[in-house]
Simulated assay, not measured.
Amino acid sequence: MATVDLGADPLALDRQVCFALSVASRSVIAIYRPLLKPYGLTHPQYLVLLALWDKAPRTVKDLCDTLRAEPATLSPLLKRLEALGYVTRERNRSDERALTVELTGAGRAFRKDAEKIPYQVVQELGMDLAELEQLHAALGRVLAATDPRA
């Protein structure tokens, strides 16, 4: 196994991947807040809608797997999205244990407005699209390396 040189201080805060990811995540999510506020949405609720716009209907289990979320975390988000009129939740007729989530007409219609959000985020970040695509690819490799299902 090759030796890894982490420099003179491997615990320096500014060298920690976890620190950079944590601060970057909070900072990027902060950009989304004012964009989602007019729709009454939080960023996690927006992620649920993105997953449903990709494929719907979906079971709660499928959403949990896709979003890497626990059912206890997702359940209140789905209840709020249902109260806002964006989704419906129904027991699966063939398997009563499974809860199916479907977009409503309002949830499908909101996609048109939501298509503007990524452009606004890119503009706010002020980074080249190629640089953001490289970052996304690198984060995809981090996600794959940390996927407990792999």
Rank of each mutant, 00 (worst) to 15 (best):
E124S: 13
L11Y: 12
S94H: 15
S22M: 11
L50G: 02
R93F: 11
N92L: 12
R15K: 14
Q16Y: 03
L125G: 03
P118S: 04
R108F: 03
C64P: 01
E96T: 13
T42K: 07
T104L: 02
P57L: 05
T100V: 14
R97P: 01
L50S: 08
G105H: 08
S27A: 11
T73C: 04
W53L: 04
A56D: 04
G85P: 05
R33P: 00
K116R: 14
K116T: 15
A56Q: 07
R97I: 03
P10W: 14
D14N: 10
K79E: 04
Y39W: 12
L11D: 11
M127R: 12
S25R: 10
R33D: 06
Q45V: 07
T100S: 03
W53H: 04
R26F: 11
A12C: 07
L77N: 00
A114Y: 08
D95W: 13
L74S: 01
S75G: 06
E124G: 02
R15G: 07
Q16S: 12
D62M: 13
V28A: 14
A12I: 04
L13N: 02
A98M: 04
K61D: 08
P76T: 04
T59L: 05
R68H: 15
I31M: 11
P10A: 14
R93D: 06
A24R: 10
P38M: 12
G40H: 10
P10K: 15
K116N: 11
L52I: 04
D95C: 13
P38I: 15
G105F: 09
V87G: 00
L103G: 00
A98G: 01
P118K: 05
R97Q: 06
Y46L: 05
R108S: 02
Y32F: 13
D62G: 14
Y32E: 01
P71C: 14
A51C: 13
G105C: 03
K79L: 08
W53S: 02
A8R: 10
K112R: 15
L78C: 02
Y32K: 02
R108L: 06
L35Y: 09
A51W: 03
E115G: 04
D9M: 11
A30L: 12
S22G: 09
A114D: 04
L47V: 12
G105A: 09
A130C: 13
A83P: 01
L129P: 01
I29E: 02
A12M: 10
L36S: 07
A69S: 12
K112Q: 09
Y39V: 07
K112Y: 15
L74Q: 00
L78R: 00
T104Y: 01
P44G: 07
D9L: 14
E115K: 11
L35I: 09
R58C: 07
A56I: 04
P76E: 03
G105K: 07
Q45I: 05
E124W: 05
N92S: 10
V17K: 13
I117M: 06
D113V: 11
F19R: 13
E102A: 07
R15H: 13
Q123H: 10
S75H: 08
P10Q: 10
L36P: 02
Q123M: 13
L36H: 09
A30S: 15
K116G: 06
L129R: 14
R68Y: 15
P44F: 14
G126E: 08
W53K: 03
A98Y: 01
K116I: 09
E131C: 07
L81K: 00
P76K: 05
E102M: 03
R111S: 06
Y86N: 01
D95P: 01
D128V: 06
K116V: 09
K116S: 10
P10L: 10
L78S: 00
